[in-house]
Amino acid sequence: MKPSGRLKLVSGVRDLQIVDCDDIHCGIVDDIELEGKPGGALRVKALLVGPGGYRDRLPRWWMALVRLVAGEEVVRIPWSEVESISSVVRLASPGSKLGLCRGEDKARRLLPRSRAGR
């Protein structure tokens, strides 16, 4: 599905996995930012990623807990960066360039360097 076509935002985009151009998982569509004027066309402006994106979706006391555990950072991904939408939202750029990999970078600093894996 192309981002320029007709979309069901709540059932078809929100809460989907985001994958960047290098096939790296870099978050979930936590909410969607719209723009428009009364009587005018409504357009998608950006995808919101991060616990701050829960603000309008959770009761206040839940949000207080989320803030306590995970903070309320939110990253805005311009809609123009969305390349396609299927069972995942695919981005045209690397997630790191859009500010999506900060959590992974912070966690990486806590790990010992290892040659293990795969």
Binding site: I24, H25, G27, E104, A107, L110, R118
Partner: peptide, 17 residues
Amino acid sequence: FFGWRWGRHCRPEEAPR
């Protein structure tokens, strides 16, 4: 749930969270 990179097919530092 949070859309992190996950799995044992990645090296630990590739999926740090």
